[in-house]
Design a protein around this nucleic acid. Structure first.
Length: 110
DNA sequence: AAGGTGACCGGCC
DNA sequence: TGGCCGGCCACCT
């Protein structure tokens, strides 16, 4: 549990948890916040593991294009979209509307 | 130990 | 933003 890799995951979770209501961010943004911009894919992997936690609003984490790429990994097929719309975010065809408006830049507030 | 995979990103057309 | 390609890096079998 105290492995270096787990620490990486913890960092991702820490930021994901800090995503404000009604806002979204991209994997790359989180990766950059962690200082590992090139490992953006690992952020996705961390999210995959986040399924064993219910404190991580993974539905607020999307790719840079504003597409709900990870919706496929959620329970249902449109669960992710439902959650986002529930927060006031408009989603059409797995695509975030007003992406720039709802975009939130993660910060290292640790 | 080696290879394959992936919820990505950036650049180019 | 649309699509394609290459790179990157940790995780899994």
């Amino acid at each position: 549990m105290t492995s270096p890799s787990d620490n990486f995951f913890e960092k991702v979770y820490a930021i994901a948890r800090q995503i404000p209501y009604g806002k979204v961010t991209s994997y790359g943004a989180i990766a950059k916040a962690l200082g590992t911009a090139r490992s953006a894919r690992m952020v996705g992997w961390a999210m995959n593991n986040c399924h064993h936690r219910d404190d991580i609003p993974a539905h607020r984490v999307i790719n840079r294009k504003g597409l709900l790429t990870g919706k496929h990994h959620f329970d249902g097929t449109n669960l992710m979209q439902q959650l986002l719309e529930n927060e006031g975010i408009i989603v059409v065809d797995n695509q975030i509307q007003d992406f720039e408006k709802v975009f939130w830049t993660p910060k290292m507030d640790l």
